[in-house]
């Protein structure tokens, strides 16, 4: 079969699936509209602390990871088998990554980078598990039945969810939603990554050595000293100003790191969920392709977060010799 024929067959299969879907699986529940909410939905309210679906999912991710780690290391053998073998391979791969980026300091950066990688990947994939999206809380007016096509169960009234306003669209709050689509999760990881980077930097270079990177007044001091003795060198003034400016840029870039970390993860995963939602309203086979893509993106984003953390930590702990080189 030539490649052109293959393409034709695949295209026909797609159209066939789409037609079959329109005929056999009508999805026409006008009462429920697809919601694209940036804010995570609140599931329960515990004494004023709202437990969101993203928080719940990150707890599930934590449980999965801890369970995996405990299973893998409960009965450790020198010759690994089963879960231990797989988990060790994973950890070793991350360790090799950390050591290839951070060199001998890689071991120091490894625990936090590995935790970030594992948590992000697992929580991203959790949000993608089929079936979790459509299962959740839905608030209804009292005495009103759920729209056609939706199966409802009463939950105990221990948890109080806001009353449904009459006339407002009925929105489903899924139990499981990828934490990366809640800006608090990527922001917390970004804060941890950047703050730890500063701490490692100070540890490696000393407080003044590290802060000197941002407030670099050495050459300005040289110029002022020269000026006091009546020998003002214009070059020193220029370089001094330049150093101060570069230091300010470094400072801003540290803050920028927090933003770029946060919105890279948040944007990618949130956009992915939106794309999947939109695709599922187009036709059946298309979401499959995007689903595969989202699995890939979910894993890659965790990897990127981890590698960037390692790289920034590595840069922050490397002594800078810019003054000596001039």
């Amino acid at each position: 079969m030539s490649s052109r024929n293959k393409v034709l067959v695949i295209a026909l299969a797609f159209i066939g699936v789409a037609v079959a879907q329109k005929i056999f699986i009508p999805f026409e529940t006008p009462a429920v509209s697809a919601s694209v909410a940036v804010k995570p939905e609140t599931l329960f309210d515990l004494n004023g602390f709202e437990i969101t679906n993203t928080l719940l999912t990150s707890w599930i991710a934590m449980l999965v990871l801890i369970g995996l780690a405990v299973t893998a290391t409960r009965n450790m053998k020198l010759v690994p088998t089963g879960v231990q073998n797989i988990f060790e391979m994973l950890i070793e791969a991350i360790l090799n990554l950390a050591e290839s980026v951070g060199g001998e300091r890689g071991r120091k950066f490894f625990p936090v980078a590995a935790t970030i990688l594992l948590l992000v990947v697992v929580s991203n994939l959790l949000g993608l598990i089929p079936g979790f999206g459509p299962i959740g809380l839905i608030s209804l007016e009292k005495g009103h039945a759920a729209p056609a096509g939706i199966v409802t169960f009463d939950i105990p009234q221990i948890f109080f969810v806001e009353e449904h306003e009459p006339g407002a669209p009925i929105l489903l709050a899924p139990f499981v939603r990828s934490p990366s689509t809640d800006i608090n999760f990527p922001l917390s990881l970004a804060l941890i990554s950047v703050v730890l980077t500063q701490i490692f930097g100070v540890q490696a270079l000393g407080f003044f050595g590290y802060v000197g990177k941002f407030i670099n007044v050495r050459r300005m001091g040289k110029f002022l000293g020269g000026a006091l003795r009546g020998k003002a060198v214009v070059g020193d003034l220029m370089y001094g100003l330049l150093d101060i400016f570069v230091g300010l840029i470094e400072l801003v870039s540290e803050i920028g790191k927090i933003l770029s970390f946060t919105f890279r993860l948040f944007g990618n995963i949130f956009a992915g969920e939106v794309v999947l939602l939109i695709m599922s309203f187009l036709f059946l086979a298309l979401p499959l392709i995007f689903y595969g893509l989202e699995v890939f993106v979910g894993a890659i984003q965790g990897f990127v977060f981890c590698v960037l953390t390692l790289a920034f930590m590595s840069i922050a702990t490397t002594p800078h010799h810019s003054e000596e080189q001039h």
Binding site: P40, F49, E50, T52, T54, L55, S58, W59, M62, T115, L119, P179, D182, N184, F185, L187, S188, L189, L191, I192
Partner: peptide, 10 residues
């Protein structure tokens, strides 16, 4: 609150 919760989680 959610941010702190996520930090504590991590």
């Amino acid at each position: 609150a959610w941010l702190l919760a996520q930090l504590a989680n991590f």
